[in-house]
Nucleic acid binder design. Structure first.
Lengths: 357, 357
DNA sequence: CCGAATAATTTGATCGATCAAAAAGATCGC
DNA sequence: GCGATCTTTTTGATCGATCAAATTATTCGG
């Protein structure tokens, strides 16, 4: 393959200097229109493309975001992050940013990768996903001045370090709204299947149910099952709830895995009328007609990029020193209604919700 | 943040020239051991990291692989590609390669992205996924000398262009083996639910069943259902099969979506004893205990990288001119047994197969 | 102990772009 | 018509590494 043309080749062809060519590309407003056109034409004719490495070397920015892929889960909830990755790739391209992915065996390893990529100026900023209680990554990144934003709020200590930029989805509000919606539609009792505490995300979701369920303290305990995530666990928990003397009319679950299990258990037990709601709106939920609380990932990604790069552009803002600018965003998810809640919520929204295509 | 040290800083500290520092990193064998140690020590002390952009500019290679993420599917099978992405990120890191992801709205758009990334020398090589009948990308990439390998064999025209390097999974063999296994275990009749023709992958899988099912021509037609992919479709098809005068003892499906539907239908109909086998071994299959034919993605990725870069190293081999070297690999998948086939295949492998946990 | 051969190290040029500052060209008031 | 000001374009240096070739150090046979 022939050598790619350089700025000098274009400059020669358009009879200008290389800097003018560079300006046409990076700051067209300072070039006289007539000149700009001549240069642009030469660019098009020669098929010039600026060399990313050279530019990055000179400008000291790579316009690349690093993202560590979460370890594969066997559950079905991993799909949220996959959707996140897609959206990120899409929106990053719109800002002329690139996305580089990598894997790591744990937080320490992840930080080692980040350091390597950062020091080699492979990457300008990172997006952290799946923050957890006592996450060591946040302190480290702040400490080392690595620009980053996390999808997931800080849990535990250092809850409000203003330098930490994060975006998260308000699971509490999501579950609360869904629960309220079911109650308003006439469900007498709404039960909940969730994860054991402490789990940042899980505790929030449960709190949402508690706020909206309208049950007395003792009933709040009876109509709530705590279990690890999983389809089987969901089924077991649902059987337990449905065997109660006054079984619930609806069950809200902390995940689609649990909801899928619950749904199967309800069908098997001849209680297909019980409304079931999952969380995450995974492809599986869509495939089996399970209503689910959907995280607005488009907005999450947009917010994350805005916190990192500002409303537009591809230059990272350094980690802020104080929170004069907002450094976090909490977005509200909403229920996508499908078959599993039709008896309760009616068919107004159609058999297939958004996300179904 | 202080400026990162450069080769010159290290050279000064170790009292050698910058080229020697460079050699310690890239060709340690030509440096005297004593010198090497001194330089290495300086590197460690200063925390030197070579600047990726500068190196790429000079060496004219980016050591980066581009990968277009497939559009999100609503089905549950997209997960295979997600697993592929993970494995790729893992194995690429082991070769000191980076992986850059992007999305596109269609083949044309994808090629535009590829061209841009390639011409800007952002990327050395591409991995194409989800090849299809009449795929325009392959010819274009060959035409433009863009090094690439595809996960998915060529379908249709130009079936054997020796310049095209590809890796694929032998779905025919996978289905054939699974069917044979079921028959050997005592299932009298094994039915099949698959996709309509023409579908490269789908036709292969069906052929595998036809080869192994041992049915006469007319029975091969009766015990085979053709339908679009989807959980609902799987359920409908399975009900049809189970309503036959002599229902099958086992059903092999072209996907986990179909298999999930079939499995639910069988349970509902009180025929939980019918063995069900899916394809792709998605997280959902693992979650609900569905036996499934698993694509050996580790091997797929390893083979793809070997075809692109040779047995080791991070320098791309150009698209070959002829097939003196093998330019493709066809790998055999294998059945992961779970609950859905336990009645038929026994519990020897335990309730949870590999890929669980 | 010398010169040839080999090993180890250094020097100068270069990859392709942008920055910073200087130079040239255009515009304007008076 | 001329300097001051603003706009547009050009020049020289630089980002941080590796390549290619030159230089210096070491080894070894006779």
């Amino acid at each position: 393959m022939a050598r790619m043309p350089t700025v000098d080749d274009v400059a020669l062809a358009a009879q200008v200097s290389r800097q003018t060519v560079s300006n046409v590309i990076n700051a067209p407003e300072i070039v006289r229109e007539q000149t700009r056109q001549r240069v642009q034409e030469a660019i098009d004719r020669l098929g010039y493309r600026s060399n990313a490495s050279a530019r990055r070397l000179r400008t000291r920015k790579s316009s690349t975001i690093g993202l560590r892929l979460d370890p594969l889960r066997d559950g079905i909830s991993g799909a949220v992050l996959d959707r996140f990755v897609h959206k990120l790739a899409e929106q990053a391209a719109a800002r002329d940013l690139r996305v580089m992915i990598f894997t790591a065996t744990g937080p320490e390893d992840e930080l080692a990768h980040i350091r390597r990529l950062r020091d080699g100026s492979d990457i300008d900023a990172f997006i952290l996903i799946a923050t957890f209680h006592g996450d060591p990554r946040i302190a480290w990144l702040l400490e080392h001045d690595v620009p980053f934003v996390s999808f997931g709020r800080p849990w535990g200590a250092a809850l409000d370090d203003p330098r930490h930029r994060w975006v998260d989805v308000d699971g509490r509000a999501g579950v609360r709204d869904a629960t309220a919606q079911l109650l308003a539609a006439g469900c007498g009792t709404v039960a909940y299947i969730g994860w054991p505490s402490p789990s940042g995300t899980g505790d929030e979701r449960r709190a949402g149910w508690e706020e909206a369920c309208g049950l007395a303290a003792d009933d709040r305990i009876r109509y709530q099952v705590t279990t690890e995530d999983g389809v089987d666990q969901g089924a077991i928990s649902a059987r337990h709830l449905l065997a109660m003397s006054v079984p619930p009319d609806a069950i809200v679950c902390a995940s689609d895995s649990l909801a899928l299990g619950a749904s199967m258990a309800a069908t098997e037990g001849g209680r297909g009328d019980v409304a079931i709601v999952g969380f995450d709106n995974t492809p599986v939920a869509a495939a089996v007609g399970l209503s689910s609380i959907d995280q607005p990932l488009d907005d999450v990604v947009a917010a994350a990029l805005t916190l990192l790069f500002g409303p537009e552009g591809d230059t990272v803002l350094p980690n802020p020193l104080s929170n004069e600018e907002p450094t976090s965003r909490l977005l509200v998810p909403r229920l996508v209604e499908r078959r599993s809640t039709h008896r309760a919520l009616g068919e107004t929204t159609g058999a297939r919700g958004p996300g179904n295509h």
